[in-house]
Design a protein around this nucleic acid. Structure first.
Lengths: 198, 198, 198, 198
DNA sequence: GATGAATGAGTTTTCATTCAT
DNA sequence: CATGAATGAAAACTCATTCAT
């Protein structure tokens, strides 16, 4: 009787077993041997489940992103104003809960810059669209409720990328960016502009 | 009389000789042998002038950045309003003239994310501060002239990082970012908020 | 009542299922996984029936050779003269019907040269003897009938190996050997020497 | 001052240093590490002079073939009749002096059968043509001198491949081929046919 | 100072074989 | 009997760095 293994399940297990490793080191510094050892499998076994190291990252990012989105939903439900809701999105860049995913996301960006592969670009594009639409919906609701001026909608892309920029700049520099404070202050100023006067 | 070779001068020559190569390929894909051949020197000679491949990039970025800043000064002199002046800064992200430097800058960011070395961080921090102050000065002038509301000053960091974010996002995704258009539109909206009504 | 599987029968089935694969690719390029998949069995099952990949080839060659010999008998029955009968033997090297077996035979020779194993040598020796005797019998009949000079018998081995040599040379070179034409012409010249003048 | 190395010379040295190894083992069984060690160089150094293992064989075959051809010329000069001269050519297949080259040639054939690469085919074709023309010239001379009948010329290709076939068959079988005796006997019979009666 | 030949550590990847189910 | 998941030995190849000349 053949041993039936749930391939998808095992992929997740392997990816999760390597989480700590992947978060700590850049994928380039990690060897297949290291991954296999960490996951408690043979090198050959790794190749049974993944094409290459990148796929491992993909798998893990996917897993962590789902959990992250759930946390986000919870936080959004608790947020009262649109201003607060938008701020929830930026917590990705500094909250402890998203530290792991953030570390991986950092890798992702770096990879996309250095060796842009189609799959990676496609994935990032998908993520961008997904979060963009999510934010858009929240802004739309804010406008519909009369909380925000319609112009708020025009600022979404810039606000979104400001977060990315702050994040990248904070990693590439030292002592000039204070993620939470700088983002919050900026967001507050922008909302001062776009919130309906009561 | 011994031939005294100006080390600093030769470094520049080597770096400049490799410009096309460095712009075209990621530093990770380039080998020392390739660099030496391109520069018309021996592999051993490369090590006489540089510690490693990164230093070569540093050298070249420095050279190109000086030229870039001069172009910027010229453009700034021609810009009438503060709005226009600020837009000059963003041309770095899309103008043809800065394509080479931009390609190198991309590498810089990636490196800082993947394998952050102290020198690199220090250099990027210095650059950030330099450009930040430059923008700050322009905004200050705009406020002093009564062209802008004082709150404009609070937005500098966010505006600055928005550019970086747009740039990074444009590289990591496909079909969602149109650098010039998206930046311009956003900047215009912000300036609509911060310009003094006449 | 247990299902008794005829081992020999199943070996044949597996070998036959892989025919197309074995003809198309060199045995070295084929993996056990590929064989198992092609035959619709598990990798482990393959080892139940064969020691290694070579045995698979043996099995298949055996099967194809039997069929080939039957075709040969038919053709020989139709051939009028000894000259024609001998030519029948050379059709192996160029006829479409024997293309599959020929491809396998090629592998066989290569293997014998590179990694001569006792079984393989023994098998090839057996084949050589078998066909040699067959030809010998035909030549003997030709001599008995007064069709050929007795010296014809002395040429058998050289004629036999000429075929092999033409075959190997045609595979190892390009544009210098035209199998059918070159063999036919040579055989005709030799028969001009050994046929009894009437 | 740079170390100037005669690349071609070093290639020969490496190839020659590996002669014994290459003759003893099939190229497939030999690893780069083994070659490097045998030649007393580093693995990387091997790749400085050769693209892959095949090139090493090429180099060595070339070297040995030149020496072999010189021996052949000497022997041909000593041979009295055309019959003897032709027999000189077949010594390649059994003489001790050509044992090394023969071992390599065996590899060559096997390779051409298993994994025919363009270079190898081209090389073998060149060799075929070279030796063919050489034999042709000798036959032509024999005919011109009235020693041979003109029909002798028609038999060259078949005679040539007979040698190859005998060689291959002798390697693939056991106890059925006696190279020197079988070739000699056959050649004698053929020459009995084609020599002018006096 | 300049050079480039020499090097071997380090990594990826494949695949025959085993064996628990 | 049949299976296919797991494995790790083995091999090719690259390239930064050194150092004799």
């Amino acid at each position: 009787m053949p041993i039936v293994v749930d391939k998808a399940q095992k992929r997740k297990e392997i990816a999760l077993a390597c989480k700590e490793l992947l978060v700590r080191k850049s994928i380039q510094e990690i060897t297949i041997a290291e991954i296999a050892k960490t996951a408690g499998i043979g090198k050959g076994t790794f190749y049974e489940y993944f094409q290459d190291k990148e796929e491992l990252i993909f798998e893990l990012v996917n897993i962590l992103m789902l959990a992250h989105n759930e946390r986000k939903e919870t936080m959004l439900a608790e947020a009262k104003s649109t201003r607060e809701k938008i701020k929830v999105f930026y917590t990705f860049f500094y909250s402890d809960e998203s530290a792991d995913l953030r570390a991986l996301y950092k890798e992702f960006i770096a990879y996309a810059l250095i060796a842009p592969k189609q799959e990676m670009i496609a994935f990032q594009t998908e993520c961008f669209r997904f979060y963009y639409r999510w934010v858009e919906q929240i802004i739309d609701e804010g406008i519909a409720k009369g909380e925000l001026l319609p112009v708020a909608k025009e600022l979404i892309k810039g606000m979104y990328t400001m977060g990315e920029g702050m994040f990248v700049a904070s990693l590439a520099t030292e002592g000039v960016i204070s993620l939470k404070e700088d983002i919050d202050r900026y967001v507050d100023h922008i909302f001062d502009f776009v919130e309906q006067e009561k």
